[in-house]
Computed example of a mutant assay.
Amino acid sequence: MKLYTRWQNSAGERVRIALNLKGLDYDYVSVGSLGAQAYAAINPQGLMPALELDGQVFTQSAAILDLLETRFPERQLLPADPVRRAHAIAFGAIIASEMHALTVNRVRKYLAGHGIDEAGLAQWVQHWQGEGFAALEALLARRAQDWDFCYGEVPGWADLHLAPQVAAARRLGVVLERFPLVVAITERCESLPAFIAARPEAQPDFPKNAG
């Protein structure tokens, strides 16, 4: 199994956490070492991550996570209860499909190329991240139980989406103090080996001057 990604890639970090939580070994392939043309032959969209498994290449983190959940069911990331399962999937979708998708580097570059200055870009990020985290905080506040993690006593689908997004928000200067449940759960996640090993600074292509 090969994971094509790079050190700072939130979607790739989600998949790394999932692989770690499931105890699965994989080969880390830095997309930066391949070059754009070579990687386009692997993933025509050119985005990360991509997973090579059983002679097939799979793209989009949500699809990869679903594949891992189905193919390696021994350690489930989604709750068995159908209600909690649906809530966990929705929680992850808010992050992956809305918060992350609207504020990734390629979107910010596009906006900058169309006349949006630094102040405007910062406002864009703060708006969409703030709206997203407010929704996540509200969802966590109305859970059936005050679990240690998003939807259970062990980290899973929702948590592996949350922790990388919080880290990205911090890098972008988003103030998170008004989201105490989000922060508390993220801090619990960040203390666990599966999350620590997935962090950007733990990856083999982490630049020496990036710390």
Rank of each mutant, 00 (worst) to 15 (best):
K2Y: 04
A90I: 05
L53N: 10
P204M: 02
F149M: 11
Q129A: 15
A101Q: 15
I185F: 06
R85W: 09
E52C: 09
P44L: 13
P79Y: 09
F133Y: 11
I89E: 06
L192A: 15
Q45K: 13
Q60E: 14
V104I: 04
W7I: 00
E153G: 03
R170F: 01
A168V: 04
L192F: 04
F91I: 05
W7S: 15
F58I: 15
P164Y: 08
S10W: 07
Q56W: 04
Y151D: 02
R188K: 11
L19V: 07
E52S: 06
G156D: 11
V104G: 00
L160V: 06
G32F: 09
I185C: 06
E118I: 01
L21K: 06
N20V: 06
N20Y: 03
A63K: 01
A88V: 12
S191Y: 00
I89R: 12
Y151W: 12
L176E: 06
F91N: 05
I94K: 02
A163K: 01
G130F: 10
T70C: 09
I17S: 00
L160R: 03
F195G: 03
H161M: 07
V15K: 01
W157Y: 11
Q37M: 09
L162F: 00
R84W: 10
T70N: 12
F133H: 08
A36Y: 02
V31S: 02
G211A: 13
A210L: 11
H100I: 07
P44I: 15
Q126T: 13
Y110E: 02
A134K: 14
F206T: 10
V29T: 10
S97G: 13
E98Q: 11
C150E: 01
L181M: 07
A101L: 11
A62H: 09
K109W: 01
P207F: 03
G156T: 02
Y26Q: 03
A38W: 00
V15H: 04
E153R: 12
A93V: 09
L172Y: 14
Y26L: 02
L19K: 05
A38Y: 08
A88G: 11
V166I: 15
G132Y: 01
R143W: 07
A11T: 02
I185L: 11
L34A: 08
V166M: 07
